[in-house]
Design a protein around this nucleic acid. Structure first.
Lengths: 205, 205
DNA sequence: GTCTATAACCGGATAGAC
DNA sequence: GTCTATCCGGTTATAGAC
């Protein structure tokens, strides 16, 4: 990754904010320039085109978040200690990086290739069997610690349970009165609910 | 809801397709007009502006899907028969209406007010306690059929587990080789995984 | 109602001075 | 490196004939 000078960083910060609020197509280079305290021409001088600027902005943020969440999965831990830690880290990383979810959604709509590429890089895997998730789950199954679930399904479910509230946040907060997805109390409830659901479902105690 | 004549319907169908592929900002009225077999002027004659057209298109599709999924929740059924039916219906409704997920995401990004309004209308609820979901879960808890979970959390989890694979489809299919989210075999696996996870988690049989 | 032609506008990108 | 001024392409929207 490049090093950026002070002006470039001002532009990148402003761009992140405006892209986040307006979307790629909706964002105006004029607005970005104003927010950065410079003018359009300078923006083009540094980043050539709006498209290029967008790519750099989103890639940095996505890489940072995915690196944190997927970057160092410790396969050596026992499943029952690993899972709660993973959930906690995932949940709080998303909560403290609200931009990442939206950018990732937009990338999904654009086909998802760039995110997929980043995922492959940070997870550093070649095949599915090579995936740390997959290995951790498979080992737990073989050791009889969990039911013989399909690893893909469990992986998808873990991610879904963590990510979805943030993706659907505006809707959920409007439909469920008083809900505040980013509040500490919700995060704690959510963490507990996810861990318990994965470990025990809703069967009576 | 309005009735639309033949030309209007041609425009609406074309618009749905183009908005879906290009997004609201990316869509060109020219493209929509061509696909509908008419010209831009006529499009404006019927719908005034692109903005207005977009609102009508998205509202119709979202209303249709949400109506199907949330419209007639039968509260009288027992929880353990109700849940699998709900999951099945939800999953297959999303799978057969791929447009709805994307439009709903865009609406979320736009603040989610319109979807929230539609949700309130089709669920026909005033407060959270008025929500059929909430009542079904609360009854099951009181009858001791399930653990005393927080209803909001369980509702969010159910929706998350169903919706997420479709939202993240492009990424998942790129990262997990050979995965086809919309295939019958994936849908069956997914349905089983969701139902089992909610009912029993992953505790060993 | 439906078309062609065009107006009016907006926004990204560049030229060129400093 | 940074600015002002301007260009130019593309897009929505409308005027006006049929």
């Amino acid at each position: 990754m490049h090093e950026f000078n002070e002006t470039e960083n001002k532009i990148l910060d402003a761009a992140a904010q405006v892209f986040l609020e307006q979307g790629k197509a909706g964002a105006r280079t004029q607005t970005i320039a104003e927010l950065a305290g410079i003018n359009k021409a300078l923006l083009h001088y540094y980043f050539r085109t709006k498209e290029k600027l967008y790519e750099i902005v989103t890639e940095r943020i996505i890489r940072k978040v995915l690196g944190n969440v997927l970057g160092n999965l410790d396969e050596t831990q026992e499943f029952e200690t690993w899972l709660p830690k993973f959930i906690h880290n995932y949940l709080y990383t998303i909560a403290t990086n609200p931009m990442a979810s939206r950018f990732m959604l937009w990338e999904l709509e654009a086909g998802g290739s760039r995110v997929a590429q980043i995922v492959r890089e940070v997870v550093n895997m070649k095949s599915l069997e090579d995936n740390p998730f997959y290995r951790i789950i498979n080992r737990a199954v073989q050791e009889g610690k969990i039911r013989p679930v399909e690893p893909e399904q469990l992986i998808i479910s873990m991610i879904a349970l963590c990510v979805f509230p943030f993706v659907a946040r505006p809707l959920l907060e409007k439909v469920i009165p008083g809900l505040d997805i980013r509040s500490e109390s919700f995060l704690q409830s959510r963490e507990k609910a996810i861990t318990e659901m994965i470990l025990h479902g809703i069967c009576p105690a």
